[in-house]
């Protein structure tokens, strides 16, 4: 098996759009299944009454991480061909903070707002228009932000490289952290119900 299939030229650009649509369906399906079409359920995370955001996100991350790891180790997937967004630490930290505040104000994130729109949420539609507005503002001020946007460039950097420890060990530590987090989340939820 030579994966990623697209990078090995097994199919072309046009078919990749069909793949995109199908993968999108899967993505949207599970987001809705998890209850992420509901702003109240999403924001409950930040009031400790429903920790689903954390549970779903980290189960997904851990699943994909373990899958990538074993496919890579077994030589079935060429991990160096998987696109890695370069790290620009400071803009990403500031962007993350703005996005987090926007999350609790708006009630959704861009992906979850799509499934909320599909299930009839008016606030999600307004939220999405807001997202496009925010991107518009970013685009307009981009010339001013450009220097900052490209600052603290660390290139393609993974946690194992940063801490200089084996990849597999990081995988284990993330698993450990996630399971610890899940146990904590269950405990907090139970406590808040009382």
């Amino acid at each position: 098996m030579n994966a990623p299939f697209f990078k090995y030229g097994y199919f072309g650009d046009d078919l990749s759009l069909v793949v995109a649509f199908i993968i999108g369906i899967g993505f949207g399906f599970f987001l809705e299944r998890a209850g992420f079409g509901s702003a109240k359920k999403l924001t409950a995370q930040f009031y400790f009454t429903d920790m689903s955001v954390f549970k779903v996100m980290f189960s997904a991350i851990v699943t994909a991480m373990i899958g990538l790891y074993y496919l890579g180790v077994l030589g079935l997937l060429n991990l160096s061909l998987v696109y890695l967004t370069p790290t620009y630490l400071i803009p990403q930290i500031i962007g993350g903070l703005i996005l987090g505040i926007g999350f609790v104000i708006g009630g959704y994130c861009p992906g979850t707002s799509c499934v909320a729109v599909s299930t009839g949420k008016i606030d999600a539609l307004v939220f999405l228009i807001g997202v496009i507005g925010g991107i518009f503002v970013f685009g307009e001020v981009f010339p001013l932000l450009k220097v900052f946007y490209y600052s603290s460039n660390m290139g393609n950097l993974t946690l194992p490289q940063l801490f200089n420890i084996p990849y597999g060990l990081v995988v284990f530590l993330v698993v450990l952290m996630a399971i610890g987090g899940f146990m904590g989340a269950e405990y907090v939820e139970k406590k808040m119900k009382k």
Binding site: I66, L68, Y69, Y70, L71, G72, V73, L77, L79, S80, P166, Y167, G168, L169, V171, F172, V175
Partner: peptide, 8 residues
């Protein structure tokens, strides 16, 4: 995973 090596 700790013992299985590097995926790259």
């Amino acid at each position: 995973a700790i013992f299985a090596g590097n995926p790259y």
